[in-house]
Computed example of a mutant assay.
Amino acid sequence: MDNSTFPFFFNLTMFVNIGQYRFIAFTFCLLLYGFILSANLLMIVVISQERTLHEPMYMFIALLSVNSLYGSTGFFPRFLTDLLSDTHLISRSACFAQIYIIYTYASYEMTFLGIMAYDRFVAICHPLHYNKKMTLRTVLKLSALAWLFPAFVLTVVISLSAKLPLCGNEIQKVFCANWNVVKLSCVTTAVNNIVGMFLTITTVFLPLLFVLYTYLRILLVCWKRSAVFKNRVLQSCLPHIISFVIYSITGFCDIALSRFNLEEINPFVAVMLSLEFVIIPPILNPLVYGLKLSEIRRHIIKLLSRGKR
């Protein structure tokens, strides 16, 4: 096998030449990254320090914030460097490392939203059994499963992709993506496609269907209950629903974009659609949970006011 089929570098071709505006774009993205870091760190600190927030729902929210930090740190430093660069070459090892981080971030987000839906389902549909079912042991088991399963499957997926001989090195993205690498293969990719489909079904569609199922059950429980009960349920579930809808839409945009011919789409629009899932959820999640859940909001205000003294 000729070594040329295993390129040392990939070329990210979707960067738009914006000339003198690159410094404005860099500053804007740097501010976004700074906000993501500070807002999610604040959520983690508040939830970890306040004993009244050491409940399953708030622990899962903290995990979402940890995942936001993880995914953003796997994307922004490299992206910020590329904004100021005239060339957009990334080494083979760095490319696959970025694929692993961004794809595990995306999978974790969906699996975490899935176990958060289960938590709300038990709290609303089986309130008398909530403390018995959602013990610390259960929370740790669910969290470990949500972390380890996507990590294992993605290790297999990326290992298979890394072994493919490639007939090119151009990736039509502003970050490395597994499907774009697989499309460069010189040989059949049937095994990669099957394993990739398994990953998509288990970390995207199954959590998606489970969340829809749990909220259907919650709706049935609320159907004949009082307006006060419905309002209490809405206040409890609304932040999760918002996070779920936002992530589903942004994730769908990136998946759908990979199936289009990008040469027929406005480059700026294509870049924006491909970046939504890695930028919007980490920004909105702390805002949604911090502003909508009164317990978190109260402790955030107390922590910030304590810091001003």
Rank of each mutant, 00 (worst) to 15 (best):
P7W: 06
M14H: 14
F15N: 01
Q20V: 15
F23G: 07
A25D: 10
A25F: 09
L32K: 04
G34S: 06
L42H: 02
M43S: 07
I44H: 03
S48K: 07
Q49A: 09
R51P: 02
M57I: 07
M57R: 06
I61D: 01
I61V: 11
V66E: 05
N67W: 00
Y70C: 00
T73L: 06
F75K: 00
P77V: 02
F79P: 02
D82N: 13
D82K: 08
L84I: 08
S85K: 11
S85M: 07
S85A: 13
H88A: 07
H88Q: 04
H88C: 06
L89D: 14
L89N: 14
R92K: 09
R92A: 02
R92W: 13
R92D: 06
S93N: 11
C95R: 02
C95I: 01
F96T: 04
I101H: 01
I102S: 08
Y103S: 12
T104Y: 01
T111C: 07
F112R: 05
R120A: 05
V122W: 00
H126P: 05
L128S: 13
K132T: 13
L136M: 14
W147T: 09
W147G: 03
F149T: 08
V156R: 01
V156I: 14
L160W: 02
P165A: 03
C167G: 15
I171V: 15
N178G: 10
N178S: 11
W179I: 14
L184M: 05
N192A: 08
I194V: 13
M197H: 13
L199F: 15
T200Y: 11
T200F: 07
T202F: 12
L208E: 06
L209N: 15
V221Q: 12
C222H: 03
C222Y: 03
K230P: 06
K230L: 02
R232F: 10
R232K: 15
V233I: 09
H240C: 04
H240D: 08
S243D: 12
Y247N: 11
D254F: 13
L257K: 02
S258L: 08
L262Q: 09
P267V: 04
V271T: 09
E276L: 15
V278H: 05
P282A: 01
P282S: 04
I283R: 06
L287E: 00
Y289I: 09
Y289R: 03
G290E: 02
L293M: 08
S294L: 14
R298S: 10
I301V: 12
L303N: 08
R309H: 14
R309Y: 15
